[in-house]
Amino acid sequence: MPPMTKAWVWAGGASYLLVVGLLVGAAPRASGTVHGVGALLAVSLLAGMVRRMPVPALAMALIGSTLVVAGPPSHQESLAASYQGQFLSYVAADFVLGFVVATCARRASIVAVALSAVVQLLVIGVFAQGENLAVNTIVGLLALTACCTTGLLSRERREHAVALRKREVAEAVTAERLRIARELHDMVAHSIGVIAIQAGMGNRVIQTQPAQAREALRAIEDTSRETLSGLRRTLVSLRQADRDAALPEEQPPLTPSPGLADVERLAAATAGAGVSVDVRCTGDRRPVPADIDLSAYRIVQEALTNVVRHANTGRCRVTIQYGDEELSVEVVDDGDGATGNGSAQGFGIVGMRERVALLGGDLTAGSCPEGGFRVAARLPLPTSVEPLVGAR
């Protein structure tokens, strides 16, 4: 706490005690109710201390309230009525106690409640008169309980809000981790599969067909550069939260995220790995939102990766259909089907299902009756497609 703020806080506490002293000493003939209400209003001087030092503020409120009760009773009313009015001053201490319960640690709150209850019961027991003892005790305990209950409810509501916030943060972190995992899997798995096949082919023909080996090495180089570019784009997007890490002019330009416009290039890379891809587009071909465009591309990419790695076939078909309300993507091969595909053992189809679910679509993946494997995704399109793919 800054020294100036601390000084103002203690000045407020001193002012409270001064006002209470004036109420007791300067107006001895006033009624007990006037003293009690005055002490209740004077506790507003402790507002700064209550916010920053609630426990010392409670101690001051108890001292001030006790001074009011212990002061000389009014001569204009009966002794019992005078003390009943003076007991109102403890409501101020109860308000401060409720704040302590709402904001302080549980152990400190328990000690504060016990201390406040003991002080009030002792003072009431000493100054209450005859049959009014039971009434004053009950009213005092009810006031203390009401303020403590209010503070406890406020505390539980705040703790619940904090727990919800932590859960939201944890869910956001988990969702981001899954997104990164999908991106890395879809991007790296396809490229590594192509590189492995091209490297194996180049190794077999490097002595007998050097020209074909050079083509395989060129394909490996192109695929590696594309993968490095995608990894760099992913890493830069992860660092965008810390914008002070580098000035905009120090950041090199980024290549745009891939989309359906890059499916032909993806098909060519897959053909270089030994699988001929027949790409067919139907419907009104048009720009789609960036998230749908990227997800559709990644679904095609992962499906082609599974064909290259598991299908044991030399051809497959990719069909992209632009409908009025949805975008459909289908990848079909005539290979070994689910038995040879093996994709259920990895994260490929899991990642595709997650992508489709996030966009509100559905995905089917399984063996075809006539043989082979089929992956089909339907992605709903917004009623008005405004964002252009090239605007990413």
Rank of each mutant, 00 (worst) to 15 (best):
P2K: 05
P3Y: 03
M4R: 04
A7K: 01
V19I: 15
V20H: 01
L22R: 01
L23T: 00
A27F: 08
R29P: 03
A30F: 06
G32Q: 04
H35W: 10
G38M: 13
A39I: 06
A42L: 11
S44E: 11
L46Q: 01
V50Y: 07
M53E: 11
V55A: 00
V55Y: 02
I63Y: 11
T66H: 08
G71C: 10
S82C: 05
Q84I: 14
F87C: 09
F87V: 07
L88F: 11
V91E: 14
F99P: 01
F99Q: 00
V101E: 04
C104Q: 03
S109H: 01
S116Q: 02
V118R: 07
V118M: 11
V123H: 05
V123G: 07
I124G: 07
V126R: 07
F127W: 10
A128D: 09
N132V: 08
A134L: 13
A134Q: 05
T137V: 10
I138H: 03
V139L: 12
V139M: 08
V139D: 09
L142F: 10
T145C: 11
A146S: 10
C147M: 12
T149V: 10
T149D: 08
T150V: 14
G151H: 03
L152F: 14
S154P: 11
R155C: 09
R155I: 08
H160R: 07
L164F: 10
E168C: 09
V169F: 13
V169G: 07
E176Y: 06
R177I: 11
R177K: 10
R182S: 13
E183Y: 12
M187I: 07
I192T: 13
G193Y: 01
I197V: 15
I197H: 06
G200E: 06
N203C: 09
R204F: 06
Q212N: 06
R214W: 13
L217W: 03
L217E: 02
E221K: 05
R225D: 15
T227P: 14
L228M: 12
G230S: 04
L231Y: 02
T234H: 06
E249H: 11
P252L: 05
P253D: 03
P256D: 05
S257L: 12
G259T: 02
L260R: 01
A268M: 04
A268Y: 00
C281A: 07
R285H: 06
P287N: 13
V288A: 09
Y297K: 00
E302A: 06
A303M: 01
A303S: 04
T305P: 00
H310T: 00
R315E: 14
I320A: 08
Q321N: 12
E325S: 15
V331W: 02
A338E: 14
G340I: 10
S343P: 12
A344P: 03
G351S: 14
R355Y: 09
A357W: 08
L358P: 12
A377P: 06
P380T: 02
P380F: 05
P387W: 06
V389K: 00
